[in-house]
Design a protein around this nucleic acid. Structure first.
Length: 226
DNA sequence: AACCAGGACGTGA
DNA sequence: TCACGTCATGGT
């Protein structure tokens, strides 16, 4: 009998406490239980984003963090902030060379320059309304995880997020096949958890925290669950 | 000093 | 569908 997903969530929450995602620039809040020297967490506060700028910052971060370590993304976001470019107008103001230079620390800077351009066009067209998952997936450079992250953290929608850590942990613990698809993992999580914004936000954040602690390098030995 | 990170896209079978 | 190559910097 594999570990139940709901029980996994409860035990992660008990072990690490509320994480407070999505991390935001300029938010001094930290989480003493988190790994590394990351900042911008706001455990116990679920009324983010509080401004249009914070919403757009989360969207940019969701794209910039694709296959990229978060500290690199923070450097890129700080560069954009220095250019006053955490806004659709700010992105537009930078030419491709300047934009690529600013986001260089996050890697794949040519591809991500285009992704930020494309996203900005659609973001403005949504005109403040909440984009559907399909609308997000229609944006070049936005795949399933990025779309779900934006829905969940930038727009406060109860949209469950799956990532490589989810697959790795579930595979290791026998909850799902190691090569299970994104949609399958999402389906079994949605079926096992209450459809709740806070639960979804914490669930993803807790899996990331747990993976950073115990799944960095193979062979994985899960100190919390075995 | 290799190894890899909070993926997505294009291509060929 | 699906497997595989590509994109790139910075931390460990």
């Amino acid at each position: 009998m594999p570990l139940l997903i709901a029980e996994l969530y409860q035990r992660l929450l008990a072990a690490y406490g509320p994480q407070g995602w999505w991390p935001l620039l300029g938010h001094a809040g930290t989480n003493p239980t988190k790994t590394g020297s990351l900042t911008g967490y706001h455990p116990g506060e679920y009324d983010f984003p509080r401004t249009p700028a914070q919403r757009f910052e989360i969207c940019l971060g969701a794209i910039l963090t694709q296959n990229t370590a978060w500290p690199n993304v923070e450097q890129a976001l700080r560069n954009l902030a220095r250019h006053d470019a955490i806004s659709p107008e700010g992105i537009d103001r930078l030419d491709d060379t300047a934009l690529a230079q600013a986001i260089r620390p996050s890697g794949y800077f040519n591809a991500k320059t285009r992704k930020l351009r494309e996203f900005t066009v659609h973001f403005r067209a949504w005109n403040g309304s909440v984009p559907s998952r399909a609308e997000l997936l229609a944006v070049w450079g936005v795949g399933p995880e990025t779309a779900d992250s934006i829905r969940l953290y930038a727009y406060g929608q109860p949209e469950l997020v799956v990532d490589a850590y989810t697959r790795r942990i579930f595979g290791h613990l026998g909850i799902a096949e190691p090569d299970a698809s994104y949609d399958h993992l999402k389906t079994i999580c949605v079926a096992a958890l209450p459809e709740d914004l806070i639960v979804y936000q914490e669930f993803h954040a807790l899996l990331v925290e747990h993976a950073k602690r115990h799944y960095r390098r193979q062979p994985w030995r899960d100190a919390l669950f075995e």
